[in-house]
Each structure stands twice: as C-alpha cells, then as structure tokens.
Amino acid sequence: MTNSTSMPVVPDLAELSVALESAMQRTIAIARSGGDPKAPVPSLNWNASETGTHLMWALFAFAGAISGEPLNAGFPEVSWDNNMRDYLAVINDQALSASGERSMEDVAEGLEQAYEALKKVIASSPNLEAAVPTSWYGPDQTRTVGTLLALSVTETLVHGWDMARAFKIDGEFTVEEARAAFPTVMSQMLPILVNPNLPDGFKASYEIRIHEATPFVLRIADGKAVAEPAGEPVDCIITMNPRYGLLTGFRRVPLWKGIIGGHTMAAGDKPWLAFKFQKIFMSA
C-alpha cells in the first residue's frame, strides 16, 4: 500500500482553521438538536449516536497523532492483509463497541473536547508537510499533518451532514468549507484506497480540478495510484464543485449523477473514464 508523504496540494492552515470552526459549531449544534440517538443514518450502518461517536474518536486520533500523543484505546491487535479499508473498518467497530451507547449530549461534549485538542494543534503552527504515524490505516502507515487536519474538516462536514439527515434537519455545509480541505484529502487518501480488484493491466490518468483550488493528477497503473502536481498530459480531466465532490468522495452521492446534474464535468481525450473513477477506488 502506498505510504507516500509528498503533497501535491498543501492546505492553507488559516483556511482549515476557519472551516473547522464553522463545521464543528454546526455539528455540535446538530448533536444537541434533540434528535433520537438511535435514528438510522442513510447510507451508513450506524445510527446518529454511533456516527457522532466515530467522528469524536477520529478527531481525537488526528489531534493525538499530530501532537505526538497518539490515541491508545487498548484495542486488540487487528490482522493486516494489505487492505486499508477492511483494517480501518475493524478499528472503527472496536472503537464503537468500546464506547458503548452514548446520548447525543455525550456526543456533543466529546466533540467539544476533540475540537479543543485540534485547536491546540492548529495554534502551534505545525509543519503541514511533516509525516506522522497513523497506525489506524495499517502497520507503519504515515500521513502528513496537513492531511490529518484536512481530514478533520471533511470528516466533520460529512458526518455532521449524516447526523442531520438522520434527524431530518438542515445540515448543509458550504462550498468554502469543503474547498479548504477536500483537495488535500482527495489527493492524499485515494492512493491508499485503490480497488484491489481492478482488471489486470488497467491504466488511467486523471487531472482533478476542484473549483478555485490547486489541481492535481492521479495516475493509476499496476494496481497502484500516485498523486502528483498537474502539468503533464492525462486521459481525463474531471472538474467538480468542492461541496458536491466531497459528498461524491464519501460515497454519499454517485459521480454520474453529478455529471448529469452539472456539478461535475468531464473532458480530455477519454472523458468517458470519468464514469469509471469511483470504481477505481474504495470508500473508507
């Protein structure tokens, strides 16, 4: 599995801070909106409380990894078969099992504490391109500080949106919030989520253009993907709205619907490859 720490899209720390603040405030308010903690979340196998609890643990893990105080929940050792998605799924299940049932107020308070930990990290002005251990993605895995802070934003945006849908209330996030983090997350995380069942010899290259963000390229060959700065020729160019793109990346909406609806556009020598894009990568 790819363990590269090069960053074709380095996020802006100030923009991440602003996006995280608004995302956390909204998500904590959603948790305190009076919804049923056992309300099922569309598209997930979790209820609202479990979704919020997962988010809390993820944020604590990101903050701990960056600060050099990794989260140690004492979970049993998980077998590794070079499949990050399945490995992470077991870690997530163990975290939820260890947490037990939580009220939505418990969730809100946990999110507040996790946000305080992240604010301390941001206030320290960390090196966004420094690699830190991220054992929940697999043995010896690392990600950059910028990636984990960007993930803090995208996880909060999407899981806040998830809980809002469970409660049937408004949880929409803004294009600006998504733009601050999504390009970094997409370029850094997709290379470790390549579908192991791609056809032999499959090759493709995509330039990803997220509105008003730094473009980047994903090259797929021999069952691996590499992210690199834009500039060299590619097979397919995908241009997307950052908000819709984030929901697409988290498998909340299909890419083809975005193309038909005008939220996403495909161009280049092989624009039809856009319809294969989601099948190349697994969701986490």
Rank of each mutant, 00 (worst) to 15 (best):
N3L: 06
M7F: 04
V10G: 11
D12L: 04
E21M: 12
S22V: 10
D36Y: 10
D36C: 01
D36I: 05
P40H: 01
L44K: 07
N47W: 05
H54K: 05
W57I: 04
W57F: 11
F62D: 01
P70E: 05
F75D: 14
V90C: 11
N92C: 07
Q94H: 12
S97Q: 15
A98E: 09
G100Y: 10
S103C: 13
L111H: 00
E112W: 13
S125P: 08
S135M: 15
P139C: 04
T144S: 02
T144P: 03
T147Y: 10
L149K: 00
L149V: 04
E155Q: 06
L157G: 06
H159F: 07
R165S: 04
R165N: 13
G171N: 11
E177L: 10
A178C: 05
A180S: 03
T184Q: 08
Q188C: 08
L190D: 09
L193G: 07
P199G: 09
G201M: 10
S205P: 03
I208A: 11
F216A: 05
R219M: 14
D222R: 15
V226H: 11
P229G: 03
E232C: 10
E232G: 14
V234K: 01
V234G: 00
V234M: 05
C236T: 08
I238M: 13
T239A: 14
L247V: 07
L247F: 02
V253E: 07
P254G: 06
L255A: 02
G258E: 02
I260W: 13
K270C: 13
L273F: 14
